[in-house]
Design a protein around this nucleic acid. Structure first.
Lengths: 258, 258
DNA sequence: TGCAAGGTATCACTATATGATACTCGCTTC
DNA sequence: GAAGCGAGTATCATATAGTGATACCTTGCA
């Protein structure tokens, strides 16, 4: 009704239910009925039914006193099912663990998802902030070393289109928002085979990434390492981190090199 | 129709859509239409519509050649939202990281969910198997050290009811299925304040757990450590692991001890 | 070449979701 | 402490939106 539904293959009610689930994020950790209604754009009655159904189905907890809804453990179980369906994670995990213990620094598996990077596996270290210690976080690909190193493996026309069109977001005051500058950076990534970025997601953080290539040699994921600028400079990173990072990325890649 | 729907507050269509999502698990990583139909008990047409909707909404990928469905990154994003809604994880994470680096062994945050334990945060080490390296896995509480140590903080009537009624599952040939034996074990856990189990989830694995207590001093979660019986015996565990595990669990507990 | 199994598309029907309305309960506020 | 407000809950007549039977395609196998 609100918008013309595609056709008879589309179940609007289910789509609305998903809107309710997706209303929850890092800034909306528990929501009341009216908050859900305003976030989803659905009317109060609909949200009442939908949220109640999700509650009965074990997808939403309901605080008996405040009447507010929050995600349940079931959300994590879905993630668990996801992990089994993603063969890359299983192949990467042992290498990532090795790498993490060798470096003593935060190590991630990053995958491209549309124009964003999603961190699918994370091995945090002592200094890691919370947002970077749990999996599932997504950030604009162009703003991250992982995104840049993946993009650098793509044909140049796709690359140019991505640099032109993909979304950017200033997570810090020093996030690069200048697309020409990003294009230049990715140019050097193409040469080097690795990417290093500074201060993009949080200040004084350095991100280093190497691409994991598919059988077609196209990158769809990256091994990513995040370190503090207070403890590391580029020279030491290139000497002490990069070789291992490259090794790990290559070991994970299913590519058949002749 | 199939079963009498509760009442007008329940949206059957949404519930069916969730059935489709939950059809995926460790043994069902990608599913065809008819497989989905038989797993969910829904008819082919319904699954067709539901799966198609989930696909259009970005919850299911569809392999263009095999026509099979699989979970998308969105499932992990839900997990990310979950993490922000669970305050325990944020509080526990730094302590768990410390602990993991100090011990060099696999460390988990385990929470009680019905009669099961769900691992909400995991810090794997080199020897960790895949299933134990990704979060969201659930196992019967009675069969795990984490479940036992949590249950040991509950009033004895609840404890007895749980030991009598909760589900068990033999993951290995040596999993304890004798409820009297489990009762005995939990009895000693009550005395000791920690739990140690052998060979319950996989062979030659030793699980050690300490309870995280809520403000009412009731345990709802545990810090859990998993080590190999080839490298550790109980004496060394008690000397080298337990003290740190207890410390971590206490540090995470929001309980106010006088 | 023909069959079987799985995926796709269509359609008339009515069960099912809809959303307006009204009721209840806790709060502030005056 | 009455009045007003905001939020959650419950009910109901209506027609929209999901249903599931059927038929059509496509693919793989014998």
């Amino acid at each position: 009704m609100t918008k013309s539904k595609q056709n008879t293959l589309f179940v609007g009610t289910l789509a609305k239910g998903l809107r309710v689930l997706r209303a929850f994020d890092e800034t909306h950790t528990e929501l009341s009925l009216v908050e859900l209604a305003s976030l989803t754009g659905l009317d109060k009655s609909a949200v009442q039914r939908l949220a109640n159904t999700l509650h009965l189905e074990g997808m939403l907890d309901k605080d008996p006193v405040t009447r507010r809804y929050r995600p349940t453990h079931a959300w994590l179980q879905l993630a668990y099912a996801y992990y089994w369906s993603n063969p890359l994670v299983a192949r990467a995990m042992p290498k990532l663990i090795d790498l993490s213990q060798r470096l003593g620094e935060t190590v991630n598996l990053a995958e491209l998802s549309g124009d964003r990077i999603i961190y699918t596996a994370r091995l945090p270290c002592t200094r890691t902030i919370f947002a970077a210690s749990v999996p599932g976080r997504t950030v604009p690909a162009l703003n991250t070393s992982a995104g840049q190193v993946i993009l650098a493996t793509h044909p140049s026309d796709e690359r140019d289109a991505a640099i032109r069109d993909w979304h950017l977001h200033a997570h810090t005051s020093r996030t690069t928002l200048d697309r020409a500058e990003i294009a230049r950076q990715i140019g050097t990534v193409v040469q080097n085979g690795f990417a290093i970025t500074h201060d993009q997601m949080i200040l004084s953080e350095i991100g280093i990434a190497c691409a994991i290539r598919g059988p077609d040699s196209r990158g769809r994921a990256a091994v990513h390492c995040s370190v503090s600028a207070h403890h590391w400079d580029e020279a030491r990173i290139k000497a002490k981190i990069l070789p291992w990072l490259l090794d790990a990325a290559n070991a994970i890649s299913p590519i058949l090199r002749p």
